[in-house]
Amino acid sequence: MSTTSVSLPAVGRRSPHRGRMKSFYPSWFYLPAAALYLVFFAVPTFASFYFSLTRWSLFDVSFIGFDNFVQFFQEPMLVQGFVNTFIYGFITSALKVVLGLALAVLLTSQLVGRGYLRSVVFFPVLVSAIGVGITFKVLLDPSDGLVNHVLSFFGIAGPGWLTDPKLALLTVAGVDVWKGVGIATLIYIAGLAAIPQEYYEAARVDGAGAWKTFRTITLPLSRPATATVIILSLIGGLRSFDLIWAMTKGGPGFTSDVIASVIYKQYQAGFYGLSTAGNVVLFLVVTAIMVPISLFLNRKEVER
């Protein structure tokens, strides 16, 4: 508030009341949010850097340097969780981009039953991950599940979707896409609606086919929507925990573990220091991926 006189020349032209108005936006409006943020988010986040360097139980803390991180990258089951986090995050994100865009193009065209289709694609977004997880665990049951029954009807021997170590993570990723593709579709629909209709008409007059129209108009002009979908689904995918936990608990063995489930397992086992080190690793992974990606996606947008 003391800077009023300094910043006035630039801002003050619009209204003579601006100088007086400044004090009507009191800075203490930040305080309640800042207090919550500080106590329940910032302090734990900063504390995690210290605690990740300790052997920590309920009763005592002893400083052990980087031992937790060394352990994190030496034990195969922890390394597997680290690698799986990337696989899971990138697969779900990529599929949501591709399927979301395809569904959005479909659902913005002249189509019978468009309203019904839009709601039905979106509805899984609103169902809890635990409910979806349990339901698909049953549907994907290797011997009794509906999916393999249908496959065997066509003469295909369905695999053990959640019991095959090679498949479990991919299956969960697939269910994640089933549950989350509705948001991606919705974002793309909003993005496509912002493309001026004249472009399509011009392309049609110029004799461009459907594929060419898609490649030269729809794809480049839905870029802001693509950026949003990639960012949102990567943030969600890299931290993902509840669906994986509901469906496989990281199993069979630890083949579908991700960092978030490793954090929970180590916490349950009472290795608080190791669990917190997992949190720091997750923090580093998410920022190391998200910061460059969002910078890249946003810069391209400004240039255009």
Partner: peptide, 16 residues
């Protein structure tokens, strides 16, 4: 940051 950074679990329990 609040949107991107995953919350640190055990330290949050420690604060609580």
């Amino acid at each position: 940051a609040g949107l991107i950074v995953p919350p640190a679990v055990v330290p949050t329990i420690w604060v609580l």
